[in-house]
Design a binder for these strands. Structure first.
Lengths: 204, 204
DNA sequence: GTCTATATCATGATAGAC
DNA sequence: GTCTATCATGATATAGAC
């Protein structure tokens, strides 16, 4: 029986996640990860042969997390408006809990997109089902006609970008007042929902 | 008289811009910059004492470029709808011409936001004049009431995010078909304009 | 399995000849 | 101003003791 849940490997993964997310692949130092895990630097290489492999392990975990299971919401048996609202709520909830993920993911994907390919294949991500549901609602006359891709891009952009640009928004809009910044993020879900509904829902 | 416009310093700046934008501060190698400039690595240190100083020179030039002069549009004597349309057109035009800027700026600002502070002070960026104009239009009943910050955030997000997330969009939406990707970007301006107008303009 | 010590390598920076 | 050669540092990786 395993009483020691925080094994060395777990400690490394936890430490690596913290360091990689805050410093990125290039900026992260193996020494710092070792220190944070409370172990020797050489042990990192014992458990994960290279920095690259350690990074991939962390990145896969993060990105799996960053693609929330919105497919289920989109395919559920509720109105298109309810679907839009639930997706936005799910995204903003996730981002408020993990505000540094977008910056990290964007940074690493611009650095080396090849990692994404494997993950997309692995998790079978398929945006077509989402676009199909949007198109159906348009054909039913519930929302205005526009390319489903662009509608999805608009919603995702409004959700994620303010978190990806956190340092800019924090400084320019709020002079680094973290309370005001958090209040702003707390308002985003309702704002985006109302904005999208105004933009696309056809009133009876 | 200077006939030789591409002086060594110019060649370094041009090469450094390319390498820094594609690799970032951490990923960029002085050797690569030297190679691209067709000169010796030691010469970089002759012209710019450190890598940090060379980077700062490039970054200032880029970010000055990334904050388009939208203040003039916002304060001009045209309708709020025309202002919104012109700002979106200006942003998308800029981004189509320089699609890698958003990724670069986001990456570096997440890495070290302090550089932004100096630049904001230096260029006297003041978003309040933009918010004031938005608020006036709301008070005149031309657009619906909502916090001006969020309206600005929505518009900027829809413009910039699809470019910042270029590798993701390219692969997931278009299977790296660059023609289709460029067509998508070409449609963005009209899509966003219509979307924002539907969302906020009050019909008479 | 865990750790110490060390080899190997890459990179930013400098010294000095021309 | 430009080059070759070299240094100093820090980081990855491995060998081998316990």
């Amino acid at each position: 029986m395993e009483t020691k849940k925080d094994s060395t490997e777990d400690k490394i993964l936890e430490a690596a996640k913290n360091v990689f997310v805050s410093k990125g692949m290039e900026g992260a130092r193996m020494q710092e990860i070792a220190d944070e895990a409370g172990i020797n630097k050489a042990l990192l290489h014992y458990y994960f042969r290279t920095k690259e492999r350690l990074f991939e392990a962390i990145f896969a975990e993060i990105i799996k997390f960053a693609f929330p299971k919105i497919t289920r919401i989109v395919q559920s048996d509720i109105s298109i408006v309810a679907k839009i609202e639930q997706v936005i709520d799910a995204y903003i909830d996730l981002l408020i809990k993990h505000p540094f993920i977008p910056g990290f993911v964007l940074k690493e994907l611009n650095r080396d997109p090849s990692g994404l390919f494997k993950l997309v294949v692995k998790f079978g991500l398929n945006p077509q089902v989402i676009f199909d549901e949007i198109q159906l609602a348009m054909d039913r006359g519930e929302i205005i006609q526009m390319p489903p891709r662009h509608l999805a891009a608009n919603i995702i952009s409004m959700c994620i970008f303010p978190f990806a640009a956190r340092p800019i928004i924090s400084f320019i809009l709020f002079k680094d007042d973290q309370k005001a910044l958090n209040a702003f993020y707390g308002e985003r879900a309702d704002i985006i929902k109302q904005f999208v509904i105004n933009a696309v829902v056809i009133k009876k």
